[in-house]
Simulated assay, not measured.
Amino acid sequence: MANTLMRKRPSDDLITELSEMTRHITDVAKTEFDNLSTEQLFWQPDKNSWSIAQCFAHLNAFHRFYVPTFVERIKNSRFQEPADYFQSSPLGHSTYMKVKLGKLKNVKRKLISPKDYNPLVNKNLKIDTVMEDFYKYQDRLLEVMESARKINIRKTKTSFSVRPIVKLRLGDAFQYIVYHAERHIEQARKVKNHPRFPK
């Protein structure tokens, strides 16, 4: 089963699919959250649950790690010849599947956010311009993935944000950050749909 899930696929197709997902995530964010008031953005269902703004602060913290890391890895990769096909490593597949939503856009498993990326714990996470920052990072991520078409995204590896000593194939890291964003967009939508959400 694992071998089927980690099948080879054209590298360009993977980047195209992830780019389309990234654009869709941005469109959903603009449609769902751009017209919210400050009160609505910062409202929490309870003291242990994130607000919509905190969901985006969490995503931006990951973007702040990954986007410049991706740029550096692509620029300095020894594998400047693109490969026709990409295949996930077992580690990469396991990593992005943990954050990927189910077929019904449901969260399949709950995860504990690392302290540095948890807005309830790390009060230094920038939160006043979360939406603007998110859109900028999404645009930059699209540029980064486009530039990655010129290199081998299987042989080029990058650090994993949660444990930098761990190295992921670049294509797997792309999948992780896109699926991770999709996951927290759904979390933010659930906050908005909460019966006590301020009107």
Rank of each mutant, 00 (worst) to 15 (best):
I185Q: 01
F42Y: 13
S88V: 14
Q80P: 10
K110R: 04
I153R: 06
L168V: 02
V162E: 08
E39D: 10
L125A: 15
S19F: 00
H93L: 11
Y117W: 07
V99Q: 04
L111R: 08
L91E: 03
D128F: 12
A173W: 09
S49R: 10
L59C: 07
K155M: 12
Y66T: 00
P90R: 15
R9N: 05
Q138S: 12
A2C: 03
N76G: 04
M145Y: 06
A188C: 03
V107M: 08
P45A: 13
K123C: 03
T4A: 10
R154N: 14
A148N: 03
I165T: 10
L104D: 15
L168G: 03
K123M: 06
T129L: 04
V99Y: 11
D46S: 15
L120H: 04
T4N: 10
Y117D: 07
R169K: 08
N152M: 05
A61F: 02
K150W: 02
V130R: 01
S11M: 04
E132Y: 13
Y176R: 09
P68A: 00
Q40M: 08
Y96V: 01
Y135F: 15
N124P: 00
W43I: 07
L5R: 09
H58L: 04
L168M: 12
Y85E: 10
R9T: 13
V28Y: 02
E186M: 03
D84P: 09
T69E: 14
G102W: 10
M1W: 05
D139P: 00
R149L: 01
P195V: 09
T4C: 08
I153N: 03
K126G: 13
N152P: 15
E182I: 01
Y137M: 09
V71R: 15
I127C: 06
N106K: 12
I165N: 07
D172H: 13
S147G: 09
D12V: 13
H184T: 12
P10T: 14
F65A: 09
K8E: 15
